[in-house]
């Protein structure tokens, strides 16, 4: 099974550890992993700002780079959602619709792939502590990612999963929304931080780095230096240390 890892631009720039964690997990699941060198961004920033031409350009680039893979897996619900749900919308009744449709069908969010497709049983991570899971919006509502990360985390003996209140409510990141409407986004992050705190968890995990940067950024600004903010891939792969 040839699996292409789409690292995402945010992981590439901000926290490559998540990319390596994903690589380790895919290999543990028995995949033959390739990481196309020229990959960059899925085009979501442009797409969500109304620049469809820019997004189409990057979609075609990505489709070419992963053409020879059986699956495309990415440690991000929003990038996977972009490819699976929004790429086909960008190429409706178009000469490229076939290629894009095939790419969309074979693209998976990481935990969805590990739990549902590769059926990873032995999770390599060794995290010990209580963990609250934040359901990132695109993964949850565009791809139905809800039970998959929880099922994988449940296979780790040291992890105690806690369900926090409003785990499905947006943290306020929303890409450029978090900068354009910083005060609204901050308030939304506050609500999230309160729910994390009230859950009493040692750490909060999610499947999207954007949410994690947002939540961690607010927690630290509020003076919380204790609660750990982790990508689910880092937890599952045992890659939570710097």
């Amino acid at each position: 099974m040839r699996v292409g890892l789409f690292v995402t631009c945010l992981v590439d720039l901000m926290r490559p550890r998540i990319g390596f964690a994903a690589l380790k997990l895919l290999r543990a699941a028995g995949a033959d992993v390739v990481v196309p060198r020229a990959q960059t961004c899925c085009g979501q920033p442009g797409y969500n700002a109304g620049d469809n031409a820019g997004a189409r350009n990057l979609a075609l680039k990505l489709a070419r780079e992963f053409a020879d893979c059986d699956y495309v897996v990415t440690p991000s619900g929003s990038c996977a959602g972009m490819i699976r749900v929004h790429y086909p919308a960008l190429f409706r009744e178009d000469a490229h619709a076939g290629d894009i449709g095939r790419l969309a069908e074979k693209t998976c969010e990481l935990t969805d792939f590990l739990a549902r497709v590769a059926r990873l049983e032995r999770v390599p991570g060794d995290f010990t502590g209580t963990l609250a899971y934040h359901d990132s919006c695109s993964g949850l509502r565009e791809l139905g990612v809800k039970t998959q990360p929880r099922a994988l985390l449940a296979r780790m003996p040291g992890v105690r999963l806690i369900e926090m209140a409003e785990s499905e409510t947006c943290c306020g990141f929303g890409g450029t929304f978090s900068v354009k409407f910083g005060d609204i986004a901050t308030r939304m992050a506050d609500n999230k931080c309160q729910n994390i705190k009230a859950s009493g968890a040692d750490a909060v995990a999610a499947g999207d780095l954007g949410c994690l940067l947002h939540i961690e950024g607010r927690l630290r600004r509020l003076g919380d230096t204790q609660t750990r903010v982790l990508h689910v891939a880092e937890v599952l792969a045992g890659a939570t240390e710097n």
Binding site: R15, F20, K180
Partner: peptide
């Protein structure tokens, strides 16, 4: 943590930005 960023005060007014690890994935890979 980045407490202040030029051109991105919309973010840093309310939140810190966790700093990047220092090398990109593509370099490390």
């Amino acid at each position: 943590l980045l407490h202040r960023l030029p051109f991105a005060s919309g973010w840093t007014d309310g939140r810190d930005l966790p700093a990047p690890q220092g090398h990109t994935f593509r370099e490390l890979y």
